[in-house]
């Protein structure tokens, strides 16, 4: 029930200092939080074909595409500051970087409209419809 008792605060002011960065959404879990040589390894070997991008990571073939954030939205990469040990305490996160598009990768499967992250972009429009102001 942690989500009901503690609050996560976003330091919105940090958006101003945040850098715009290329973001890759990988189809695997990498047990690493920190810098990585993305441009040297991934970007340098990525191929742009007509309908998809291709690359390999750790010897596995990936296919992907670029995806823009929904209109009026900005993507945020958040980083927790002063991470507390207990989940009862409030948490604070700051914006470490921002993005307006990302490249997502599937394992061997060509990118398509059923991909989770593509479908996730439906939400803003739906949210607007159900939460937005009602016009008479």
């Amino acid at each position: 029930m942690s989500s009901n008792t503690s609050v996560t605060r976003v330091l919105v002011s940090s958006v101003g200092e945040a850098q715009r960065v290329p973001v890759h959404l990988m189809p695997c879990e990498i047990e690493h939080n920190g810098p990585a040589q993305v441009s040297q390894y991934l970007t340098a070997t990525t191929k742009d074909c007509k309908l998809e991008k291709t690359v390999s990571f750790r010897g596995r073939g990936l296919k992907g595409q670029e995806l823009s954030c929904p209109n009026g939205y900005t993507g945020l990469v958040l980083k927790e500051i002063n991470k507390s040990g207990s989940d009862q305490e409030d948490r604070t996160v700051k914006v470490s970087s921002v993005f307006d598009k990302l490249t997502y990768w599937n394992l061997e499967t060509p990118p398509n409209s059923d991909d989770t992250v593509v479908m996730a972009m439906d939400w803003p429009e739906l949210a607007e419809a159900i939460h937005g102001p009602v016009e008479d």
């Binding site: 189809p27 695997c28 879990e29 990498i30 047990e31 690493h32 990585a36 040589q37 390894y41 991934l42 070997t45 390999s56 990571f57 750790r58 010897g59 596995r60 394992l107």
Partner: peptide
């Protein structure tokens, strides 16, 4: 993180073993 350049055959146990012991773990 990335293991090796594409010059290396990632499917060889030699490469896999080194990545397992010296690299970060990746789960698919």
């Amino acid at each position: 993180v990335f293991g090796y350049p594409q010059f290396v055959r990632f499917s060889w146990s030699t490469a896999q073993t080194l990545m397992d012991s010296k690299g970060v773990t990746v789960h698919w």
